[in-house]
């Protein structure tokens, strides 16, 4: 008699923990053959709220980590993902991808994580400036993360869209609350397991499954979320989220990209989620002494 398979319970990921949804509700996304993939948490507004609290708590320490250290942690995500490559390929195939496409997507995801890992301690060097002001002051501008970033993951992919939005955000020191693809949620939960095992501090990435339609509004209107990024959303929902974002002047970006393309990774995805801070300090010039003799 063949061995009975142990089925995986897909849970959500908040503050480094894997709770079930607070609502107790589930939905069953279907595979390409119309068969239920799994029971997936239909997260609620309260889950969003809890995730934002976790993200806010994580933001300070994460943004203050040494950039080099953030780079190491991001690279560690790539290492862990590589180790579970087969699992992701399998899940992508269960969700309808061909083997080639699934393998490509996983490999590209890993490489994209490595790409952003490398940026951690470089983007600020590239985008900062020392500003030659006319007065006797030292003046420089550098980048700082915006804070808690809401992410409505790309809906037509399970993994690459998710990775392409999360990585530039955390690379720059933000923490995230991510709404996974509603129809293709498996990789999001497994990705959370990768995050969990790869030194990313609790709360930096929080992943919720369920209906973006339902949760995104809560995220967009949340006064403690500093930015909202979405991808390929239908116009009506995108506009609705944009309107809700105005109340605390959330920075909002909607990327219309095909993330499976190799070059859909760039510095500006990082800098979009950065504030520019300019600092002034006087320069004392004693008695007109100069550096020449």
């Amino acid at each position: 008699m063949s061995r009975l398979e142990v089925l995986k319970t897909y849970k959500i990921f908040i503050g480094g923990q894997f709770p079930r949804t607070e609502s107790g509700r589930y939905y069953k996304p279907l595979d390409s053959k119309g068969k239920a993939l799994a029971n997936i948490c239909l997260s609620s507004r309260k889950d969003v709220r809890n995730a934002v609290v976790a993200a806010r708590k994580a933001f300070g320490p994460w943004s203050e980590r040494a950039a080099f250290n953030r780079g190491q942690i991001l690279y560690r995500i790539a290492e862990m993902l590589e180790g579970r490559q087969a699992q992701f390929v399998d899940e992508l195939m269960r969700q309808g991808s061909s083997k080639v496409a699934a393998t490509n997507e996983v490999n590209l995801s890993i490489d994209r994580i490595v790409y952003y890992a490398g940026w951690c301690d470089k983007y600020n060097q590239v985008l900062s400036s020392v500003n030659p002001v006319s007065s006797s002051h030292f003046n420089f501008s550098s980048l700082e993360p915006m804070g808690v970033v809401g992410v409505v993951a790309e809906q037509s992919t399970s993994l690459i869209g998710l990775v392409s939005l999360i990585l530039p955000a955390i690379c720059g020191g933000n923490s995230t609350v991510v709404l996974a693809s509603e129809k293709l949620p498996l990789c999001a939960v497994t990705f959370a397991e990768v995050i969990h095992s790869s030194d990313v501090p609790a709360g930096v990435i929080n992943i919720l499954t369920g209906s973006p339609e339902e949760m995104a509004a809560t995220l967009a209107s949340h006064m403690d979320v500093n930015a909202l990024i979405t991808s390929n959303l239908e116009t009506k929902l995108s506009n609705k989220l944009a309107l809700l974002s105005v109340d605390n002047l959330k920075r909002k970006f909607d990327y219309e990209e095909n993330w499976v393309e190799k070059d859909k990774q760039a510095l500006h995805y990082i800098s979009d989620l950065q504030e520019i801070k300019t600092t002034w300090h006087p320069i004392e010039n004693v008695g007109g002494a100069s550096s020449s003799y």
């Binding site: 007065s135 006797s136 002051h137 006087p282 320069i283 004392e284 010039n285 004693v286």
Partner: peptide
């Protein structure tokens, strides 16, 4: 007494 520090640019 303990003298306060002086910032020359501010003085200027």
């Amino acid at each position: 007494p303990v003298s306060p520090s002086i910032d020359k640019v501010g003085v200027e």
